[in-house]
């Protein structure tokens, strides 16, 4: 994409301006690029360097760091705890992303088939859930699942599950992740449902009418006409959900405050936090961080390609 090719397609006025001031766009980019280099570029560089160095107690008191090659990676990734954290993170991410998209798709289809005022009620409640700040949401769920006075335990007792009276949901690893999943799904379904619903409404009436004339029933129209047309939206929200559900540091950290077994409930972000801030093992934390960054970049590839196509369009 050179200056001349772009100019040839535009009007003469711009072409002249472009030839006279080829430096302008670069000048306009300077502040943004500078901010990105300071806030993200340097930290990434630091992580790459640090992950290849010995960064022990000596170095924290000013000794020059020693280059150790891939020793940190070897040390970290032969640790079974790391692999258990990675496995838990991926499982948590996939289960939540699939459930979120499944429920969101169900809600979107449901919104098509209900009375207008019901649809608006659903949209408003979804927006409220989406808008709730993460910290407030986790705090409310801690209150809902409170062992002494929480509504959830009260409800179970009313339904005859007396043994759940005073049950501490956040004390057990499995129920801990279940509550965490409720929070993640509750917060992410609105985006998925409203995006897919927006996609459903964009399917043109002519296409549906044509299908009806050809004798397709409503079930066939949904699965043979509408679903293939909204598949791109579903694919994109699923991908975004997978990327977002890998980064659930805050939800887990805030729930752990209720007294959960920390080492067993750590996911990747929390493990890095413990390693870096907790144990001051910066080299190890840098190595795991880079692993997370690379994983995210790989997963983001298809999404970025999709957005680039949008830009060209």
């Amino acid at each position: 994409m050179t200056t001349t090719t772009g100019a040839s397609t535009a009007s003469d006025g711009i072409a002249i301006r472009r030839r006279r001031k080829p430096a302008t766009p670069y000048l306009l980019l300077i502040p943004a690029v500078a901010a990105l280099l300071v806030g993200l570029g340097y930290p990434v560089y630091w992580q790459i360097v640090t992950s290849l160095q010995e960064f022990g107690l000596m170095q924290q008191f000013g000794a020059p760091p020693e280059f150790v090659g891939l020793d940190n990676y070897a040390r970290i990734f032969t640790d079974t705890e790391v692999w258990s954290v990675v496995a838990k993170s991926i499982a948590f991410c996939l289960v939540n992303a699939l459930l979120t998209v499944g429920i969101g798709l169900g809600l979107a289809v449901l919104m098509r088939s209900v009375h207008g005022w019901v649809r608006i009620t659903m949209q408003i409640t979804l927006l409220l859930a989406w808008a709730t700040p993460l910290v407030a949401a986790v705090t409310v769920f801690r209150w809902l699942f409170d062992d002494r006075n929480g509504v959830v335990n009260w409800l179970f007792v009313q339904l005859g599950q007396e043994n759940l009276d005073g049950y501490n949901w956040l004390g057990n690893v499995w129920t801990f992740f279940m509550v965490a999943s409720f929070i993640v799904i509750w917060m992410s379904v609105p985006f998925v449902a409203l995006s897919i619903y927006a996609g459903l409404t964009q399917v043109s009436e002519e296409v549906l009418e044509a299908a009806r004339i050809d004798g397709a029933g409503s079930r066939q129209i949904l699965w043979r006409i509408i679903m293939p047309l909204v598949r791109p939206v579903i694919a994109i929200v699923l991908l975004l959900q997978i990327i977002w559900d890998l980064r659930v540091f805050a939800q887990i950290r805030l729930l752990q405050d209720a007294g959960a077994p920390i080492s067993e409930t750590n996911l990747l972000g929390n493990y890095i936090y413990e390693l870096g801030v907790g144990s001051q093992d910066f080299a190890g934390a840098a190595a795991v961080s880079l692993f997370v960054l690379v994983l995210t970049m790989v997963l983001s590839g298809p999404y970025v390609r999709y957005l680039m196509k949008e830009d060209a369009a």
């Binding site: 994409m1 050179t2 200056t3 090719t5 772009g6 100019a7 711009i14 472009r18 080829p22 302008t24 766009p25 670069y26 980019l29 690029v33 990105l36 806030g39 993200l40 340097y42 930290p43 990434v44 630091w46 992580q47 640090t50 990327i243 890998l246 980064r247 540091f249 990747l268 972000g269 890095i272 936090y273 390693l275 870096g276 801030v277 910066f282 934390a285 840098a286 961080s289 880079l290 997370v292 960054l293 995210t296 970049m297 997963l299 983001s300 999404y303 970025v304 957005l307 680039m308 830009d311």
Partner: peptide, 29 residues
């Protein structure tokens, strides 16, 4: 407003960067 050399790379970088998780950076920051 401009088509310039490096424009596509800048957009590509921007789109990738927006996906970076805070959890992968906060120790360095």
């Amino acid at each position: 407003r401009w088509r310039f050399r490096g424009r596509t790379s800048f957009i590509l970088a921007v789109l990738f960067i927006q996906m970076l998780p805070a959890e992968g950076l906060f120790i360095a920051q």
